[in-house]
Amino acid sequence: MNADAQLIEHMMNPKNYGDMPENDATGIGKNPQNGEKVAIYLKVEKQTDPLITDISFQAIGCTTTIVAGSIITTEAKGIHFSRAEELVSTTLGMLDNLPPEDAACSEMVALALKASIDTYAERQKDANFPMISYIIKTDCTPKEEEA
């Protein structure tokens, strides 16, 4: 990851980091390769197309994961689920352009957002539906280490 000024701002002061005990839904994105994970917590306003009124995240992961979490949750705050799903698709669609270790971190955050949205949707049908976790597909081993 290049450490330019904007990214460093996210490292120094990650946006939306922390737990949210009174959340409406939580979702997890996991990397089983190294045990890293991201949890995203949502506060949602019930509408035909639900609105994310507040969002936060926590992570067991590297600095790249924190930067990705800070950027993606900032984008997701105040938007409707339909737009948030587009945000997830766009992020997942860009992974091929990133180095594997950066791609794995972004995928983990995007999947945590998807998991939180899906958990919320399922809970509208069944209030006891368990929290959803998704596992990333990207191998985060840097290319030079694969040989």
Partner: peptide, 12 residues
């Protein structure tokens, strides 16, 4: 580049 580290997840 000073910043306070993020809080820890309980399972850590």
């Amino acid at each position: 580049i000073l910043g306070v580290p993020r809080s820890l997840m309980e399972e850590i």
